[in-house]
């Protein structure tokens, strides 16, 4: 009897040890994020204190105040919101229609279309950078938010198309057929049955499109060089480069603010993470 108890105890100890190790490793991975948050809440003087304080001795929101009232950060933020939202709306409408067409209709070049989508998804941004610059320049869309939205569709659209394609592929065709027998036209069947069914896919694609556009740096750096059309990533990097005395706590406050929409999106996304990510991004 005591032998079995000892065994059970040993197993339990092993389990607790494994749990603790897992959490230690997770916290190690997440440490930079905590450090970012911690630094953003410290008074400037404490930032440079040695030894560094892990948890701020004095919590202050002065950096967030400075950021919002004494820097162009709010402009960058607004620009980013407009660009990311615009990209998302455009991309979702276009790719939902496109994905449905590719899955449900037979016409010449349909397979090629699907292959092209995947190809574009893998295409390096830097290959399109130069010609896109020329096109936007000729359209007068350099230094405009619309230009950036168009540029972002080059990666957000293939991604969404691919993700929504796999969603619609998994959808039984019976439902659309039932709707058409019940008196719906093809387009009505799409609106009444396919769109509501694809909602989880639409949400995933929308959130990913938003996050990708929110985070993009290279196109934003090259296309929008004026302060009033800059988005957050190049904008904040400019703030890093401008001052000779880097104000790390201010930059960390900016980082935290930039991360907030992503966190919000992430919380929504989590439920769809495995389905959306698994279907769209990994399995072709």
């Amino acid at each position: 009897m005591s032998g079995r108890r000892a065994l059970r105890l040993r197993r339990r100890l092993l389990r607790v040890a494994a749990d603790l190790t897992t959490w230690a490793l997770v916290l190690a991975v997440a440490f930079p994020l905590f450090w970012m948050l911690g630094t953003s809440l410290k008074p400037s003087a404490e930032t440079f204190a040695l030894p560094p304080t892990l948890i701020p001795a004095h919590v202050t929101f002065e950096h967030f105040r400075t950021l919002l009232f004494e820097t162009p950060f709010p402009t960058y933020f607004l620009n980013s919101v407009i660009v990311a939202t615009g990209t998302t709306l455009l991309v979702i409408v276009v790719s939902l229609l496109g994905a449905y067409s590719v899955v449900r209709f037979r016409y010449r070049g349909r397979r090629l279309a699907a292959q092209m989508v995947l190809f574009t998804y893998l295409l390096p941004a830097v290959v399109l950078l130069l010609p896109l610059y020329l096109i936007l320049a000729s359209l007068g869309l350099v230094n405009s938010l619309l230009g950036l939205i168009l540029a972002y569709t080059t990666f957000a659209m293939p991604f969404s198309l691919w993700l929504l394609r796999s969603f619609i592929l998994a959808m039984p065709i019976d439902l659309e057929e039932a709707a058409m027998v019940d008196g719906a036209s093809r387009v009505e069947a799409f609106l009444d049955v396919v769109v509501p069914q694809a909602l989880p896919g639409i949400i995933s694609a929308a959130l990913f499109s938003f996050i990708l556009s929110w985070n993009e740096y290279l196109y934003a750096l090259v296309f929008n060089r004026q302060d009033h059309t800059k988005t957050l990533p190049p904008g904040v990097i400019t703030m890093l480069q401008q001052n000779t005395n880097t104000e790390w706590s201010l930059l960390m406050a900016a980082s935290v603010m930039m991360a907030v929409p992503v966190i919000v999106a992430f919380v929504f996304l989590q439920r769809h993470l495995t389905s959306g990510f698994g279907a769209g991004a990994v399995k072709g």
């Binding site: 957050l232 990533p233 790390w248 930039m258 992430f266």
Partner: peptide
């Protein structure tokens, strides 16, 4: 734990770099 681990991937590269450059800072 999963959320914490997945988060770096969703973060803007600009933010990730800022944080790491601060961590890597030679003086502080």
């Amino acid at each position: 734990a999963r959320s914490l681990v997945l988060f770096p991937y969703l973060l803007s590269t600009a933010v990730a770099v800022l944080v790491w450059r601060w961590l890597f800072n030679d003086l502080y």
